[in-house]
Design a protein around this nucleic acid. Sequence first.
DNA 1: CAGGGGAATTCAAACGTTTCAATAGACCAT
DNA 2: ATGGTCTATTGAAACGTTTGAATTCCCCTG
Lengths: 349, 349
Amino acid sequence: MTRPPETQTLPIEAPTERPTLRTVAQATGFSVATVSRALSDDPRIALKTRKTVAEAAERLGYVPDRAARRLRTGRTQVVSLLLNTEHEFLGFTHEFLSGITEVLRGTGYSVTVVPDDIGEDRLDLVRNIMRNNLADGILFTRTECFDPRARLLMESGFPFVSHGRTDFTTPHAWVDFDNEAFARQAVERLVTKGRRRLSLILPEDRFSFTQHLRYGFLSAARAAGIEHEIVAGVTLDSPTPEIAEALRESRRGPTPPDGYICVGEVTALVTMAALVDTGATPGIDADVVAKRASPIFDNIRPRIETVFEDLRATGRAMAEMLLRRMAGEPPEDLHILFKPGQPDWNGGA
Amino acid sequence: MTRPPETQTLPIEAPTERPTLRTVAQATGFSVATVSRALSDDPRIALKTRKTVAEAAERLGYVPDRAARRLRTGRTQVVSLLLNTEHEFLGFTHEFLSGITEVLRGTGYSVTVVPDDIGEDRLDLVRNIMRNNLADGILFTRTECFDPRARLLMESGFPFVSHGRTDFTTPHAWVDFDNEAFARQAVERLVTKGRRRLSLILPEDRFSFTQHLRYGFLSAARAAGIEHEIVAGVTLDSPTPEIAEALRESRRGPTPPDGYICVGEVTALVTMAALVDTGATPGIDADVVAKRASPIFDNIRPRIETVFEDLRATGRAMAEMLLRRMAGEPPEDLHILFKPGQPDWNGGA
DNA sequence: CAGGGGAATTCAAACGTTTCAATAGACCAT
DNA sequence: ATGGTCTATTGAAACGTTTGAATTCCCCTG
């Protein structure tokens, strides 16, 4: 091995500049190119060299400059999370985001949060990210049956994972909760409790999970041969006062519902409030089964029956999948359907 | 003005590469340097030229490459939000983040979320961001009286805004909620309702807002000459079962509290549950005043009295301040103390 | 008409990587 | 010695900006 001419005459520089490849190169006597290759474990570099370089880099505290790498390779080391900021989610955002960052920590990827409100052109958002190279991958929620974002991303071959399935035939990576099973289970639980007139408020029609909920609800209710209604005129995203009014309205009839299935936590609270406000007693005159994502329901009295959707695990799964997609793995087998689980009653009283 | 030699002989290229400064330069006949300066409205460039260039850039859909700019200038156009992922905040994260992104949208800055859990060395996190140039500014929450992150950032002159004040004498930018006033108001409201034995659960001692709450609570309670206790052995961050147990325990005495001040939403629910579970009726045997950040309390029955902390506005304010800090404004006058407001009862029943 | 001054523009270097193509040895077989 | 093959390393260009210094051009003054 050719030892380089002695360039390192100055022993220590006081202000301790941030080390670059050049610093490491000078310290080890190799060229910048070799150091770069050594650090990426390029097999063309002698093993011994790789070790030397790795040690020097460690010792000097070398960390590659993201901007430079990004400029050179075109890869941003960034993942964008499209986040709806208009609606109320209680624990949703927090848990979901926690799961994502948990997985991404230490991978060198960072998450940027991009507000994604129905108001503007959500497609432009995605286009902007792709075109201007703002991220290597995208995560989004509130997936629609024929989600235009998914379509665009698929056409471009851009890595993404959706929270929720689509109806496209081309496969893509997704993570979803089995809302059909949830609805079915909820119906069964209410039926078991002797409830005969079930009520459900659905999300907006364009979301794919709306279809799953509807199907699960309708088929289970029909199978059980009981009365059932899907509350008209409001959706999960309606302002809570409207939802409350719709619920109270539906209770004014001669035979009001005696079993409620709530897909969101807020809706569950609204439902409970509507019951109380119309003179009914939850647990006596009607039962409520709710999907819950946060532990708050442990502390609601009277207790509500809940089915747990683990959003932190969802975030984790989506981040892991996105990593695999960005590493080039085909989307064919990248999906997870979370089954409704029991809440982790770690003693919630 | 010297018209350049005709370089643009090829009229249209099919694959439509992403335009760079060079593209715009070629299209206008100016040099890359001029185009760059023109786009940044450099007064040295003739006004007419600036206009021409701006138009061409617009027409071609030119957007500066962030990586290149970042490499050259050292500025990242990124803001890091240090987010605690361990604790439960209900609407906190969502509202806060929404406020931040709302302000940052269109400024060219993006937000990255960095998990900041007490477990690891939170200082290293900050050091890492500064050293490796991962952001131009930092936002963080859960500020401590002598917050080491704040100290480090101040020493380095790195732009940041904290959610919460510190006890340092050197000024820095912060946004805070007047928790002292909140505690005081809460005491007064309970006293007005005839409550004589007040109870409060505080956050961990090291947080600066804990001191404000304590002071407000103690001084108001003493002024009113009524009994008061700060629940021992648990904090706001304790697991909810522990909080619940502590509350039930405190109700076992001969004269249990009849007025509760809850600093968090979860705690408020736990308190309500503890009351019910020990046979007391909220609103009759005891009253609860809670700080609320999300609208869910509109839908809790019986209704709780709440004081609203607008976290979306807090996020907005912090983002705005950070922009000003990053633009070089000194921190002297950059602080906002949000006064406890009335909840925006837009009709919640 | 030399040359000073100012306005407008351009040149070229630099930021820190990655990577293609080239080079330098070493070893082996002719 | 000559050439070939293989391994280990290096030189240099490129990614798209920004910016200090240089250049060009024109007008004006003496």
